[in-house]
Design a protein around this nucleic acid. Sequence first.
RNA 1: GCGGGUGUGGCGGAAUUGGCAGACGCGCUAGAUUUAGGAUCUAGUGUUUUCCAACGUGGGGGUUCGAGUCCCUUCACCCGCACCA
Length: 807
Amino acid sequence: MAFDHRKIEAKWQKYWDDHQTFKTDDESDKPKYYVLDMFPYPSGKGLHVGHPEGYTATDIMARMKRMKGFEVLHPIGWDAFGLPAEQYALDTGHDPAVFTEQNIATFKRQIKSLGFSYDWNREINTTDPEYYKWTQWIFLQLYKKGLAYIAEVPVNWCPALGTVLANEEVIDGKSERGGHPVIRKPMRQWMLKITAYADRLLDDLEELDWPDSIKEMQRNWIGRSEGAEVQFAIDGFKNETVTVFTTRPDTLFGATYMVLAPEHKLIDEIVTPEQKQVIDLYRAEVAAKSDLERTDLAKTKTGAFTGAYAINPVNGKKIPIWIADYVLITYGFGAIMAVPGHDERDYEFATKFHLPIIEVVAGGDLSKEAYTGDGKHVHSDFLDGLGKKEAIAKMIDWLVDHGVGRRKITYRLRDWLFSRQRYWGEPIPIIHMEDGSLRAVPDEELPLRLPKTKNIKPSGTGESPLANDTEWIRFIDPETGMKGRRETNTMPQWAGSSWYFLRYIDPRNKEKLADPEKLKRWMSVDLYVGGAEHAVLHLLYARFWHKALFDLGVVPTKEPFQKLVNQGMILGTNHEKMSKSKGNVINPDDIVASHGADTLRLYEMFMGPIDAAKPWSEKGIEGSRRFLDRVWRLFVTSEHRLSHVVARDAKVSEAFEKVYHQTVKKVSEDFEIMHFNTGIAQLMTFINEAYKQEKIPVYMAEGFIQLLSPVAPHICEEIWSLIGHDQSIEKSTWPTYDDEKLVEEQVEIIVQVNGKIRARLQVDKGTSKQELQNKAMINDRIQDILKGKSVKKVIAVPDKLVNIVAK
RNA sequence: GCGGGUGUGGCGGAAUUGGCAGACGCGCUAGAUUUAGGAUCUAGUGUUUUCCAACGUGGGGGUUCGAGUCCCUUCACCCGCACCA
């Protein structure tokens, strides 16, 4: 009889709950292991099959490490603020808090049904005031350190909806809901100065055990670029200069014009009356373009001449100042010196508008294209004859000496836009006083609670719905009587997820974010598993907050996540991304009901490497179930007793004994490096062999069940108890293997002639090269093949092969 | 365009200090069992070929006694970034 997964899984899930089997002991003196899943957002749709993949991987590690003698911290919680709940609330008139609570209940039920070994005592929720109290506290620390500031920045404003939209809510310049036009509108926003940490975020990547692709993406995102800033005087304007950033100051003699971004604030001042109309027209044109169009239409360059001229500081030449949208206001100084001879974009622009192109680095053919390579400088006065590197250094020295420039590093990374004009987020604990000053809410008044309110509709002014709550925003200083108004912006979803891994360590602490001693014990996270979609934003924000907290002395490590693994996506059976519209979605609830949680866990780990994208297969999941059935039938009788095949004094062949020890070794090693698919394959091999045995010793049955238990814990607990144990298998010690049982006395050697296998030899292990060669040469078949040929060379590799080269 | 990755039987995938390609699973074939089917157990299963054998890791080239693995080149697909001066 096959095992009854419904009964057994429910039984052991209850047992684990009742016995608090997975409760983490802070007092333990075992070595620690902190294994973490990325913070789930409890969406109304519930779990999809991608969740159990990462969760099973971490659960296997957690369960195995416990059996290997580690004190394991394996927590879970809810990243529960966010847009979908607010949108649902708007659509239905319900309270997002209630909706969120229901979603969490669904997620929790689903996660529990999969039998993950979380310490549920440490469950946290970002929407819990006891949690967001500390999110607000961290914000205030950043504010006090000067890392949070208010700036006017353009946001996605939708006049029809009367609200600001997140980037992902804007599709082709229209609102995702309703298809209303969205414009870029400057608004006062809270910003976090992540750029102050750019270099450290970049440098510290080196020491992290993360996938190279993720590190590379972070490097590109930060986009550090070394060069120089150069000041250009403007002809006819004594008090104005334009500063540009360039990575190629050595080409300054080749600068034949200058380009400002259309949003550059100097344009209005310097534009000549004759050109004003052209410029205004062009700027209007650009403003009408969405970001997408601006980059999409990048094929042909556009621009307009201001009529003004800048003075090239190095040779005093007048060069025209243009504006063009290929220069971005958000990068560098929003202005460039154009060197068409040695920059492809400038070349294209200069060609189109018939601007002069001068060669200052030899080596290319400027009649065809820009030359961006290295070479000797020409037409460059004091740089002539120098290569790129020396020329850059010399030019920077010259700029510094003449007070018109200096070495400069810029970053692609911009400061973090931290405000959201939304209700369902952490309130920013700041009060705007009527005298214009800002006041931080005192620590002892935290948490600043999100008010319960019926009206979470957009305020219409671009402020968050909190502006509707006149009672909540009003503030009067009890001492001075000065009035103030609470900040109505809330925090983005990234806030709560930027530090949650710290709270798991001490989730109920009322005095502190977490006890420093406990932080010291548990940080950093030893293994962090999640999807690659968080490669940049979440992982960069969390690293930034962590470093700021490190500087404040709150946390003991400068990086939060030592090892990171991205699980690959599970595709539909048609090898395409699962989506409702394609009708290829697999619901884990259905699989748990039909095949069981153990089968789902096993199958997801067996499908392929953890980090690869893999298609789902109906037949595949059945195969995994079949394997568990085979395990069950081997060890358990139809009367639900331990099979008589398992015997204490069973004698087994050396060959089978070897398979067992090989299995312990391979599974232990493979699981340790998260090669679950190959480890499981070895478990299958063992069962295949075990089926051919008359008797199986108890210790082998136990060892096998222990090895399988991290993957399929319910069935293994059941068999473990049938073997006669009265404690959870979790409390047992991971099996060991005996190296001596693995030693081969004889090995098979292949004999090749010219690289082709012609014979096999059984020889003693460790047979010398010379002897191998002799044995190979006297082999009948080899003799046959070598007839009429002369041996040129013989390569012998002990315990592996002999290769005879013959002509 | 730039950066990163992947490419192996009918399918998912094994194999890395360069040394027996295809472990394990799915599917398929045969046998046993069964009234039958399903399930189960056992064996087989890269391609071509009567045999000997030859061929075979996206394509082409190279290094080597020996290449899925290293180098060059090329193609296809996936992911990320996208005028970053």
